[in-house]
Amino acid sequence: MQTQEDLEPTVRIRELKKDRVNFVLGNVDLAFANSLRRVVMADIPTVAIDMVEIEVNTTVLPDEFIAHRLGMVPLNSSNCEEAIKYTRDCTCLAGCSYCSLMLVLNVACHDDNTMDVTSDHLDLVPFPTDPEQQNPEPGEELTQRGELFGQPVGKHEPGVPPVLICKIRKGQELKMKCTAKKGIAKEHAKWSPCSAVSFEYDPHNKLRHTTHWYEKSIKEEWPLSDNALEEEPPREDEAFDFNAKPNKFYFEVETDGSLDPQEVVMRAPVKQTAPAAPAATSGGVSIMGAASKTASKRPCEEAGSTSSDDSLAKRLEPALRRVK
């Protein structure tokens, strides 16, 4: 008889769409599956607006409010791992084209109707070079970037509604420079590539990992999920097997568009290169001048939070590759 450990991990993709992937992970243990969930949610780096330099804001919303909203706008971050450095790892002093992106927002309303300022108004511009400062280590990053890297998600796609930032009326203006940086969701949720990650195992609760509270009938009050079709329902007379372990894990990863779902899941088992994350500032976005003051660093080696287990990662890779 083969034990579970001997089996190769399997990944069976049930659905793959532009913004979501639904797959079944098999032959791994619960801890591994859960760490995959956690990594997908919190450890995949993306880029997001992190600093806003406000030049004109004559809207009804205060600066902090708008800065916070800008931080939440998903930016295209494909191949983020190679295409951009963490600012803290970069040799530059206060941001350069290797570790930062520059987006400008310059809108004014001149007509009588209320105007929506949306993520479509955010324009990616080349990062201004500081003539006084020479980057001693010109990296490979720029060549690794895709065409849309750093653009707001869905900007040039028809049919994708943009993200509303603010509404302005006649005579109001919004002008600002936004610096986007690479980061992970451990620091602030705006860097999470996922909007929702569903995760389920043992839909019949055969393992009794949970107790279902019910009034009259457990069957009526706890309807089975679709995933229950994948597993054999328990027989009435089946004895409880207290040695049983979960073996099949049902995932659905839904992204906000900054990364493809495929990339999110593929990146997850690879050892993440995110050693540290600074404490989050208010709203996650610093307004000009605030960034320099938050320099405290805190180690992030919380148990089980990053998939540092190389062997497990290696074990999963072939399965993923096959899927690819």
């Binding site: 956690r38 929702a196 569903s198």
Partner: peptide, 13 residues
Amino acid sequence: VNQEDMPFNDQGI
């Protein structure tokens, strides 16, 4: 609590 440490249901809510 960080997002990833939050309780969640089968739909990821």
